[in-house]
Deep mutational scan, measured.
Amino acid sequence: HNGKLCKLKGIAPLQLGKCNITGWLLGNPECDSLLPARSWSYIVETPNSENGACYPGDLIDYEELREQLSSVSSLERFEIFPKESSWPNHTFNGVTVSCSHRGKSSFYRNLLWLTKKGDSYPKLTNSYVNNKGKEVLVLWGVHHPSSSDEQQSLYSNGNAYVSVASSNYNRRFTPEIAARPKVRDQHGRMNYYWTLLEPGDTIIFEATGNLIAPWYAFALSRGFESGIITSNASMHECNTKCQTPQGAINSNLPFQNIHPVTIGECPKYVRSTKLRMVTGLRNIPSIQYRGLFGAIAGFIEGGWTGMIDGWYGYHHQNEQGSGYAADQKSTQNAINGITNKVNSVIEKMNTQFTAVGKEFNNLEKRMENLNKKVDDGFLDIWTYNAELLVLLENERTLDFHDLNVKNLYEKVKSQLKNNAKEIGNGCFEFYHKCDNECMESVRNGTYDYPKYSEESKLNREKIDGVKLESMGVYQILAIYSTVASSLVLLVSLGAISFWMCSNGSLQCRICI
């Protein structure tokens, strides 16, 4: 991952900044910058967002509201009850120091605090018919004063009620008058409520006091790749198909172990950190130390980045220098085999997901714990399936590479015959000098055995068991695999060879 928040398929997220979902939807004055928000790819909250409900109280069923919003990608904020005409018999300019803005008392931008007009609070009834052709999110509140005197001074009615009804919602609220500790300079409380109004449905408000009335509502448009994440990451000019709280993932790998919460087309989250597919040879310690064997393909974004291909070729060293050249036929066979294998694994496992966190309130801790156990169970199954699949494929890959290298080895052996000696570690020792032209003939299969047989015969008789390297004779190393990324691999195959001279070296080696 890149540690950044990015656009998702070209669409920017909605960053709530210092506000949370509650503050944004109710219209906390400190969240005025969010009022123009219309569309987004996903919503970003920060872990310690401080601006929620400015007048103390709870947004009821907040967790369910977050779940609903996680599939919303755009909205239209509109005046559901026009301020100047909807409440002619009531005062609608209630403000509070708890919702101060720029040093002055204020109130929510989407709600109206209705109080008595003169000395009376006549029963009010108002309704709205949803003609938007889509779901409408309606929010309101109920004020709970701290004393009967406060109730009387604001609403005149000691036994007030609030009723809200639609086809799918029907509740009646009565204020709970009680002494409470002071929070944000208030002994009173406000509880906030919401409902989704279906197209064509009607919502009716009736009250004799204590109503925090809707002013603006939201017509919602769903987008199934949307979601809500909690993150401290910063926004950058970048684009992605998959976003996590820790950063964007741009990967076609089937798995990731970065974060379980994802938005967009994302690899499946697994616990494993070692889900690797081999593309090189079986481990040979001396070669492995030099980083030549054991190439791997990573299938977990965050564990290993991208696929690494092994390729086969020849390396030689003689009086004229040293050089490398790919054996294109065996390399292409290996590439085709690995590509098919990788595609097979991805096809089997690479279903892209959006995974969002589930919200539970403080009273639902047991449910949250149960949900976590269920999620953990599914996660263990996914991890096991992934590891088992790759384990089985790896064994076949190792066998496949062994065969490829063996074929190259036999190709060289059949040409050199007794003009060189096998020394048991995949290397041959020449009994004759071999210049670049000679080396090329070994690589392309045109090695002239009779041409060098007499010199080889004489050297075999002279050496008589002495280690060949100390006599200045020449080696050919018969097994060799270097490691390159897919891009470098293609470039390498396009070149005939490249040279690395070893000044004054008397050794001649050709490596497979």
Rank of each mutant, 00 (worst) to 15 (best):
T351M: 15
K365W: 06
H432T: 12
R509T: 13
I510A: 15
E347W: 00
E469S: 13
Y409N: 05
Q352P: 04
D375H: 02
I296M: 15
Y312R: 00
Y480D: 10
L458C: 05
Q246M: 15
R460M: 02
F378M: 10
G504I: 02
L275I: 15
G377Q: 14
C501V: 15
I476C: 13
H316I: 13
T482N: 07
E440F: 05
D448P: 04
F430V: 12
L487N: 06
K451V: 11
E429Q: 08
F255Y: 09
E454C: 13
G445N: 10
Q328G: 00
G445E: 13
Y314G: 03
T273M: 15
D435K: 04
I476K: 03
Y312P: 01
T331P: 02
H315S: 03
T331S: 15
T305E: 05
L253N: 02
S470M: 02
L388M: 15
N371S: 04
L379S: 08
L292M: 15
H432A: 04
R282P: 03
C427M: 06
D399L: 01
G472Q: 07
G298F: 06
E410R: 04
D402S: 13
S234I: 12
E368Y: 03
A295V: 11
A326I: 07
Y289F: 14
I308P: 00
N361F: 02
I512A: 13
L370E: 09
S286Y: 01
G280R: 14
D309W: 10
H259E: 02
N318S: 04
A325Y: 13
E393A: 05
N385A: 06
Q332C: 07
C427L: 09
E395V: 10
F353T: 08
N418E: 12
Q475T: 05
D435T: 10
G504L: 06
N503S: 14
G313M: 05
D448I: 03
R460P: 06
N252M: 01
G291E: 12
K411F: 02
N252L: 15
V270I: 15
K372I: 06
S231C: 00
F378P: 05
M307V: 03
S344M: 10
C501I: 15
I476G: 12
N257S: 11
A484Y: 03
K451S: 14
Q256F: 04
E395W: 07
K413C: 13
S251N: 11
S414N: 07
E368N: 08
D435P: 13
I258P: 03
R271H: 13
N436Y: 08
S330K: 14
T383A: 06
